[in-house]
Structure formats: C-alpha cells, structure tokens
Amino acid sequence: MRFQGYRAVVTGAGRGFGRSLAISLARDGAEVFLSARDFQAAEAVAQEVRHVGGRAHAFECDLADPESVREFAEAAGEVTDEIDVLVNNGAPYLDSGGFLEAEDAQVAATIAAGATGTVLATKAFLPLLLRSERPDIVTMVSGCGEYGNHRSEAHEGFYAAKAAQAGFTEVLSKRLRPQGVRVISLYPPDFDNPDPLGPEWEAERGSGDALSAKSLVDCVRFAIGQPRDCFIKSFYFEQA
C-alpha cells in the first residue's frame, strides 16, 4: 500500500473534498486524523474509513477558534508522536450575494477560519511534522487565491481568506524548505465532488468535463508520494 505508515491530518474532513481525500489516503494505508467543527461529522467519516479497512481518529476543531485549534493538535499529539502530512483543507465558503448583504459575523468567521485557522493549524502541528522524515504541508487554496482571479461567485471575504492563504504558503515554503518540509498548494476552480465510496468515483473523466475531486486527490497523492528531491510547490488549473 503506497502510503502505509503515513500519518496524515486533514482539516475540514467532515464532508466534501476533505472526506474524499481522507478516504483515499486511508484506503492506501495512511492513518488519518480528521477534524470538523462538528465532532459527529468527523466521526462519521472516520467510521467510513474504518469500514474500508483504514485507520482513523476523529476530532472536533473550529478553525476560527485558536483554543480549539490548539486542543486539536494536542489531542492528536496524544495519539501519535509525529505527523507526515498536514492538509489544510478546512475553510468555510461564503456565497457572493452582494458585498453589503453578508453579515459582519459571516465575513469575520470566513476569514478567521480560512486565513487565521490555516496559519494556526500549521503552527500547532509543525512540531509533530518536524519529527517526520517526510513532512509535507498541503493547502487547498482555491482559484480565488490566484492573483487576478475574478471568475468565482464567492464573496469578497472568501477571496480575502484565500489570498491570505496564498501569501502565507508562499513565504512558508521558502522558510521551511531548509528544514526539509515541502509546502504544496492547490489552486483549483470550482469542481465536482462525487462520492468517493460510490461507483461514480471511478468513472472515466473525459476532456472538457468539469474538474473532479478525484483529479485533485490524485494531485495530492502524486505530490506527497514523490522522492524528497522532487518538490512540487503548486498546482494551477485552467478553468473551463
């Protein structure tokens, strides 16, 4: 199994892409540490992982709450003494609906979880990552973090959170590389997310179709599976 012995943390793993990636990595041998704002959501995915023969641990973590982020890392540290992969996936989406229409609390929570949460989760898990011989930090930035991107219907606050993630991962990559940590960022446009446990997951993806979560999962698996002298820093995608 390709990722046998890997320990991977996936934030925002209670649904969507985080769930898909966690199930894929676990199927291929990784032990996964899953977080979600709702513990029951994380535990439900952990049960799915166990059902397909993987190892999983569920945690509650609100990325907008610094104390919750610290507690997540501390709880994971009680289970394992090192982490090989941190996937910064958790970030709430905020629809556009007009810049002035969004409530202040919604905008603040979006930026706090997506931007500050990513920084704090990385900070909290870095000591465990530095104990690994193959540490990787993967961040799902989204095309909204790409300079000049204006094609998404997302709210400006979501754009702000993703731009912050992009700037953070750029400088983090330069500063952690001497310590052997690869920082990998993905900038996908909107994409389809079929059920990773359903038959449509393995369906053939033809040219011209919308980007699939399976393709993004394959990108992550490819990047972290490369020898340590191969550093794939970013994945950018042309939007159809």
Score class of each variant (00 low, 15 high):
V32I: 12
L211S: 10
E67N: 11
G97I: 11
D209P: 00
L197K: 07
E153Q: 03
E82D: 09
N193K: 09
A105T: 15
R55K: 15
G5K: 07
A105G: 06
V69R: 00
I111G: 02
G29T: 08
G53C: 08
S215G: 09
N193R: 11
P227H: 09
E71V: 02
D190R: 14
P227C: 12
T139M: 06
R2Y: 06
K233R: 15
F191Q: 10
A75Q: 08
F72W: 15
H57T: 08
P196D: 10
R50P: 05
R15M: 11
L34T: 01
G98W: 12
T169L: 14
G198E: 09
N89L: 04
L197I: 11
G225W: 03
N193P: 05
L197R: 10
F72C: 08
L86S: 12
G145A: 03
V119D: 02
T169W: 01
K123D: 06
F222A: 12
L34G: 01
A58V: 00
V79N: 04
L176Y: 12
D104V: 09
R15F: 11
G97E: 12
L186A: 05
P194R: 11
P66E: 05
S212F: 04
T118A: 15
G90I: 10
S24W: 00
L211W: 08
I184W: 14
V87R: 00
L176V: 14
I224T: 13
F72I: 03
I232F: 13
L211D: 08
L172I: 04
D229Q: 14
L176E: 12
V52F: 04
M1W: 00
G143M: 11
Y187M: 07
L128P: 06
V32E: 09
G114T: 11
H155C: 07
Q226N: 13
L129K: 07
L120Q: 15
R7H: 10
A91P: 06
F99I: 15
V87T: 02
E82N: 11
A91G: 14
Y236D: 10
L120K: 12
M1Q: 06
G12Q: 00
R175K: 15
S142T: 15
E67P: 01
A213R: 00
V79K: 13
A64Y: 04
Q165Y: 03
F17R: 07
A46I: 04
S212G: 06
S24C: 06
C61P: 01
D218R: 08
R7V: 07
A8V: 15
A102T: 15
